[in-house]
Write a protein that binds this DNA or RNA. Structure first.
Lengths: 352, 352
DNA sequence: GCACCTTTCCAAAACGTTTTGGAAGGCCGA
DNA sequence: TCGGCCTTCCAAAACGTTTTGGAAAGGTGC
């Protein structure tokens, strides 16, 4: 004997109807539910009970209109081929959405329709009032989106940062420069003297900074700079070619660092193919600690960062930025963790 | 000499102001932009030009209120630990968001706040009018969300399906039952007779169906049913223990299938640890073709499905469901692709 | 000169909520 | 008895858009 309280397509209750049923004004019901003090204890109780009984859920759209805020935070989903397999994105979104929900906001995921411009979409999302702010996922050295959003007065928080003007917006970044500086010193201490590096072609800031950190470590030790090759991410064939090129340099570098695990893994594959033993003959290190890194042969030494945690922090920063306006602008640097595994070791004895 | 057309915090133009500037009524401007025929060609041109010049972007919230639709589709982001590393989620979201954008809708990502109920969140998302429909990400055999949403009349599309009542809602699923039936026949043809299976404890429908398909193949060949062990996904230690248990059965199975790559990879790890050569002494097969599968030692034989494509299809199905009501309900089954790699082979000669 | 179209425009209502600016009634102190 | 102060409630405006139901002006046919 189950009584069906909700039927398919049931019209949802509005404030007006709830008020009529209670024989009160809309105002009083609204204020009772919002907990204002100018409604009597007795009335508030009655209203709350009726609202529960009827399953009243306030129409957010009505609220948005009057408040002028949507309580949505927008993000552009990267859909470029090599980013589709980005092992981080899910973690990032989970952390971000969770952090936002915790603070009473929701996440709005947009994509760029074919033939449209990133910038236009980004702007429209906010100007159409579907979102109060946006999150930028991965920055280039002089990311045009940053200047654009600042100019339009759109609140945003960036994951990553530009090279200049980092005071003008909120960002959270991993200290890749510090990590690679540290890595350089470690490898030098292990006796390495000839270095090579595999870097992405696109001018992501993280790549620039990681490279700079590594090069600085070598310069400080009075060593020659690394032999750097750049390659488009996601192009497996090109990565393999570049890895082979570096491995076959004469004299061969004793350590090859990849600015991302993906690149280091290509070096590992190529080394195995050519019968060069890692780490005895060649040290390989990556950055990111992607899931495959632990499964590689040998397991890849790399750096790990807690993406979900960073994303949750970004959620907090967005809300801060929205609530305090420009006073809420802040930049944060988080330290990655060195994950030593089996792909690195002392330089081979014969090497100069 | 760059003229700054938009300043930080510039108030955005509303329809009323645009109308005032053009010396027209709000109605006319609205209808001109919407392309109605009851406004003269000349006026329409004037309005369009002014709108472009001022960069007028309609406030979607105003539209939502009058239309009663938000043009958002909601989805609950799984945040259970083992799902955080779900390699599919990013692909799925990209495909879904892309498909929705293509059809003029947007994706709204919700999470379940601590201490709240999935169902309540799901319902509230729609009843608060923040979304017109929802997408369910991964179903269990008798998923309570399905009954709940049908009862409340909330339009939704499921990725995966329940065991019963699949006529009552829209779903898209991979034919795991067919795939594992096929796999069973392949392995039998290769001479295998003793099988084991590693399955997740949670009653996901995909697990039930894959298992059923495999068992049916064995039954049809008059062979004994597989030795099945279940283990909680994401619990690495438990997975290793279960893998070891299956490997050390006496007599040892000649083939162990994992209902997910994750489980098969645990078997692979354990086999290596115990010095059992795959595929000479033991055949191992998974399902999903996760990125690590190709990197495993040996590379894992598995099944692949195009998640992004499926998600795009789901986007189409959601829109269909919204536009045609209950008449738009449909179920779709997609075939996964067998990906033979090095982890499977003929049964060892000595085995009975 | 009249009825009847067409074309082009617009005032007002509607969507569901919050907020503003009182109003009504009761109580208190003088 | 009266002014002033609480407490409790409410009517109306506001948010930005679309839609409804005309109205005004001009043309056409008889």
């Amino acid at each position: 004997m189950h009584t069906r309280t909700h039927k398919t397509g049931t019209k949802r209750l509005r404030l007006k109807e709830l008020a009529a049923h209670l024989d009160l004004s809309i105002t009083t019901v609204s204020r009772a539910l919002a907990g204002y003090s100018d409604v009597s204890e007795e009335t508030r109780r009655r209203v709350r009970e009726a609202a529960d009984a009827f399953g009243y859920v306030p129409n957010q759209v009505g609220r948005m209109l009057v408040s002028g805020r949507s309580n949505f935070v927008g993000m552009l989903l990267p859909i470029h081929p090599h980013e589709l397999v980005d092992p981080y994105l899910a973690d990032f979104l989970a952390g971000l959405a969770g952090g936002l929900t915790q603070r009473g906001r929701d996440l709005f995921l947009a994509t760029v329709p074919a033939g449209q411009d990133d910038l236009a979409v980004l702007q429209r999302v906010v100007e159409s009032r579907r979102a109060d702010a946006v999150v930028l996922y991965r920055l280039t050295c002089e990311d045009p989106r940053v200047a654009f959003l600042i100019e339009r007065g759109v609140p945003f928080v960036a994951h990553g940062r530009t090279l200049a003007g980092t005071d003008a917006y909120s960002w959270l970044d991993t200290d890749g420069e510090g990590a690679f500086h540290d890595l350089g010193r470690r490898l030098i201490a292990l006796g390495h003297r000839r270095f090579a590096m595999l870097a992405p072609t696109k001018d992501f800031t993280y790549a620039f900074l990681r490279r700079r950190g590594f090069e600085r470590a070598l310069a400080e030790a009075g060593l020659p700079q690394p032999d750097v090759l750049t390659v488009p991410l996601g192009d497996a064939a090109a990565m393999a070619r570049a890895a082979a090129q570096l491995i076959n340099r004469d004299p061969r570098p004793t350590a090859i660092v990849g600015l991302k695990d993906q690149l280091a893994l290509a070096v590992l594959d190529e080394a195995r193919r050519e019968g060069i033993s890692v780490p005895q003959a060649l040290t390989v290190v990556g950055f990111d600690d992607t899931p495959v890194a632990a499964y590689a042969d040998p397991p890849l030494t790399t750096f790990s960062q807690n993406i979900a945690e960073g994303a949750a922090m970004i959620a907090a920063m967005v809300v801060e930025r929205l609530e305090k306006g420009e006073a809420g602008i802040a930049g944060h640097l988080v330290e990655p963790r060195f994950v030593p595994r089996a792909s690195h070791g002392p330089a081979p004895a014969g090497a100069t």
